[in-house]
Design a protein around this nucleic acid. Structure first.
Lengths: 110, 110
DNA sequence: GTTGACACCTAGGAACGCTATGCCTAGGGT
DNA sequence: ACCCTAGGCATAGCGTTCCTAGGTGTCAAC
């Protein structure tokens, strides 16, 4: 499935709910929550997390308590705000698309 | 607003409902239906329509009845099928995103 | 001893959306 | 006469984004 432009929303949402998580756990969380629909490759997730970090929406640190060193990410204050904003934006987006393509996507065609 | 990856759905939907339309009319239809949310520039619409034509989902011809020559686009049989498919896909996409970000986008937070 | 899950990272390509620009007509304002 | 706005088509080229494809390494199971 095609997630263009909505990765940030998904990532921020996972980090919002899960607190501090490492990249691989984000991948599995996304896969599990979406029932397999969002099975995103590492080459998508890691650069995306780095982008969010550069944007100041998440912070990261190394977690050495695990058997293998892992980098854990966590929302910043800005990130929490951005997460809420993007959810609002998402709702508006859905409403607008619905308005264009017709109402059948809400109640179903039958 | 950000429509990445969903232009095709919007365009096909408009063409599906409107029949034969020219590019500029697609722009205004999109703007009107979405209440201004999707105010897409010509540099987005025309290449997108050409893409759809290359993909065999729409056909085009010149309409010389208007004071100024206009190119009108219309769904092909494949296009009609693709439109239905993309609507189904869209519904699944919304469900999946909702599953990841939480249910608050349906009933509202309050 | 090799397979598979866990875990991180990057280079590079392809596609996409948009900005900017060009060209043209018609009508209204000044 | 002049300009502006709305209508109408089209392309070049940029920046971003996502993903493919590779590389590194641990650990447990078979």
């Amino acid at each position: 499935m095609d997630i263009r432009g909505h990765i940030d929303l998904l990532l921020l949402s996972v980090l919002h709910d899960r607190g501090a998580v490492h990249g691989y756990a984000v991948i599995t969380a996304l896969r599990d929550r979406s029932k397999g629909a969002f099975d995103l490759p590492e080459g998508t997730i890691y650069p995306a997390l780095q982008r969010l970090e550069r944007a100041g929406l998440v912070g990261s640190r190394w977690d050495d308590s695990a058997p293998r060193r892992r980098r854990v990410y966590e929302l910043t204050e800005d990130g929490r705000r951005a997460c809420a904003d993007k959810k609002t934006e998402w709702r508006g987006f859905v409403v607008s698309v619905q308005a264009v393509i017709g109402p059948m996507a809400v109640g179903g065609p039958a």
